[in-house]
């Protein structure tokens, strides 16, 4: 990371997003930066094509997977640790989602 880590992280996130509405979770600097860079691409009520998850927690990731549209993508933009026991079935597997983690 450079002296502008949030900016760099947000830029990397943008490269991983598919076309269509995007929703950003979290209230930190990364979240704010991504929201700013996304401009008008924020989602409305309908499930978005992508969710940017900025907490990096298992609960946050699970919520993002639940929120995103079927076939959509969750981009995790936060420091992460392995999750020893995660429900990969209910959302990720059944709804054909994609999950990526931005290097940080």
């Amino acid at each position: 990371m450079t002296s502008q880590p949030h900016e760099d992280l947000a830029a990397a996130v943008l490269e991983m997003l598919p076309d269509g509405p995007v929703e950003v979770t979290g209230e930190g600097a990364t979240a704010e930066t991504v929201r700013r860079l996304l401009g008008g691409r924020s989602a409305g009520e309908a499930p978005p094509r992508a969710v940017v998850e900025t907490t990096g927690t298992a609960a946050g990731i699970a919520a993002a997977l639940e929120r995103v549209a079927s076939g959509g993508r969750v981009v995790v933009a936060a420091p992460v640790a392995d999750v020893p026991a995660f429900d990969t079935y209910s959302e990720l597997h059944v709804r054909g989602l994609e999950l990526v983690v931005v290097p940080s």
């Binding site: 992460v80 392995d82 597997h93 994609e98 990526v100 931005v102």
Partner: peptide, 14 residues
């Protein structure tokens, strides 16, 4: 998750 981030893996449900 850590390997996914470090190695830019995408986990895909099917």
């Amino acid at each position: 998750l850590s390997a996914m981030g470090r190695r830019r893996l995408t986990v895909v449900g099917a």
